[in-house]
Design a protein around this nucleic acid. Structure first.
Lengths: 204, 204
DNA sequence: AAGAAAAGTTGAACCAATTCTAAAATTGAG
DNA sequence: CTCAATTTTAGAATTGGTTCAACTTTTCTT
């Protein structure tokens, strides 16, 4: 069933995403006109709207790829974490943050986050919420792992702590992308400081 | 210096905000057309844009009033907090959350939050960031207060814990407004659960 | 009180996302 | 190969936020 039609469809998807990625980075989200994306992807405007419900969904597809990469990178840390709670958390969070600007500019992140709260029921809105949940789960999984190897007290409510840590990190990341002059090292240091009390409290 | 011009200006401001508030609630943010707001406020479209940079700023003015009320209500709790850490935090957070839907619908919150990340440098974006900071400070102030009366250990990093608690609450609130069917009691219970570890850790 | 300057108001025009339509192209089935 | 179904295409129409140049109103000056 992988007929020509299937292949062409996949190819158009890729062309649209490639064109949009390039233009979003060059001209910013607002500056990248649908007409220009269509031209660069060598499809018509109508085709773009046939593939994606709206401009936000195109950005959404790009964000999804990025976050999925981050989730993959995170699995390694969960599987074999550094040998103390603070470093383990810092390493996982570090992966999230350091990867975050690989493909997406701060402006793209701002737009993506805005769209996901503005239209929570759009395809992208739902995907974004799901990705957040997966990241939260990954942090909780790390804590569970640390409990297994006796670095975290067994009576700690892992899922709740995972949510707390993720929500704080996410909010800090939002503030980070809102300020163009904000830098990654300061962001990480601030998060480490915030987590310190928690790390002390849950450590075995 | 309270000439005619001043009075007319104040009056127009009020009429625009009243019209917008009514229409946002009736028709939703997107549904409330600038043209309709102008008509109901009995000013021209141009005048609205003379008073507010864009549609988001109108919503911003409404949100500001709401948040400032909440901040005021919170001062009482900080001044004389309940006699244990868990209840003190729960009371303050309760005030924030219970007041939150007095004037603003979930849809209005979604839009407001989206705009504040999308346009962090717009007048509203800056005001919103400042309000978040004030809420964070208020939580930190509560913790400082609890340290004074020996309910919280003196060596705890109050500001960091305040940020952690605020960021978590805020993120939970964002998820809350994203789901129309989400209910306040469940939200509060979830936040209480997340804060539990922290409460245990900082209590004297 | 008249005239000039300053401040504010107005709505038509503009722009870009999105929708719609009818025609052209492509594909898979028989 | 031919036909019917599906997709793509180009572009016109729609829509709603935002801008702008001309017009009014208010204030200031003398």
């Amino acid at each position: 069933m992988s007929g020509l039609r299937e292949r062409q469809k996949a190819d158009r998807h890729r062309r649209i995403i490639d064109a949009a990625t390039a233009l979003f980075r060059e001209a910013g989200y607002e500056g990248a006109k649908i007409e220009a994306i269509a031209a660069q992807a060598e499809v018509s405007i109508g085709t773009i709207y046939n593939y994606y419900q709206n401009k936000g969904d195109i950005l959404g597809a790009i964000v999804s790829m990025e976050v999925n990469e981050v989730l993959n990178a995170g699995r390694g840390v969960v599987a074999s974490p550094p040998a103390n709670v603070g470093d383990a958390l810092d390493t996982l969070i570090g992966i999230y943050i350091e990867h975050s600007l690989n493909y997406l500019s701060k402006e793209m992140w701002r737009q993506a986050m805005a769209i996901s709260t503005q239209l929570p029921d759009s395809p992208f809105g739902q995907v974004y919420t799901a990705l957040d949940r997966e990241l939260t789960s990954q942090i909780s999984a790390l804590i569970a792992r640390l409990q297994e190897i006796d670095l975290v007290r067994p009576d700690i409510d892992g899922p709740a702590v995972g949510e707390l840590i993720f929500n704080n990190m996410n909010m800090m990341f939002i503030e980070f992308v809102k300020r163009d002059e904000a830098r990654i090292p300061e962001l990480r240091a601030a998060i480490r400081r915030q987590n310190r009390v928690l790390v002390a409290a849950i450590g075995a």
